[in-house]
Simulated scan of single mutants.
Amino acid sequence: MRFELTAEQTGFARSLEDLLTRTDTAGANRSWSDGDHRPGLALWSRLAGLGVTSLATEATPVEVCVAFEALGRHAVPGPWIESAAFLPVALPDVDLSGSMATVAVPPHVPFATDADVVNQVYAVADARLRRATVQEQQGSVDRSRHLFEVAAGDPVEHGDLTAAFDLAALATAAELLGAGERVLENSVAHVKQRSQFGRAIGSYQAIKHQLADVRIALDFARPLVHGAAVNPKPRAVSAAKVQAAEAANRAARVGLQVHGAIGYTAELDLSLWLLRIRALIPAWGTPAHHRERLLADLLETR
Rank of each mutant, 00 (worst) to 15 (best):
K208W: 07
T133D: 04
A229M: 06
R131A: 08
H146T: 02
G202D: 10
N186P: 06
V156R: 05
G139H: 10
R235Q: 05
L211N: 03
F197H: 09
Q196E: 15
E185Y: 13
A228F: 01
A152E: 08
Q138Y: 12
A206P: 03
P232M: 03
S144A: 13
H158M: 05
Q137R: 05
A200N: 12
L129F: 14
A125F: 12
R182C: 12
K233E: 00
A179E: 10
A189C: 11
G153I: 02
D160Q: 04
R199F: 13
A125R: 14
H146V: 05
A125E: 13
H209S: 04
K233G: 00
R131Q: 09
P232W: 01
V188A: 07
V225W: 13
F220K: 12
L211E: 09
V121M: 11
S187V: 05
Q120S: 13
Q193S: 11
V141I: 09
P234M: 04
P234D: 08
D219Y: 11
K208A: 10
S187K: 08
Q210E: 00
L177P: 12
E185H: 14
V188P: 01
A171Y: 10
H146K: 04
V124K: 00
D154H: 06
A171R: 07
F197D: 11
I207N: 01
Y122K: 00
R128K: 10
V214A: 02
A152R: 05
R215G: 13
H146I: 11
K192V: 11
L161K: 07
A163F: 06
H190G: 06
V150D: 06
A168V: 03
G180I: 03
Q120M: 15
L177D: 08
R199S: 09
A229F: 04
A212Q: 15
A169W: 00
R145P: 02
E181A: 12
Q196A: 15
I201L: 12
H190K: 03
L167E: 09
A171S: 14
V124F: 02
F148M: 06
H226N: 10
A152K: 01
S187H: 11
P223K: 05
F148K: 04
A152G: 01
A179F: 11
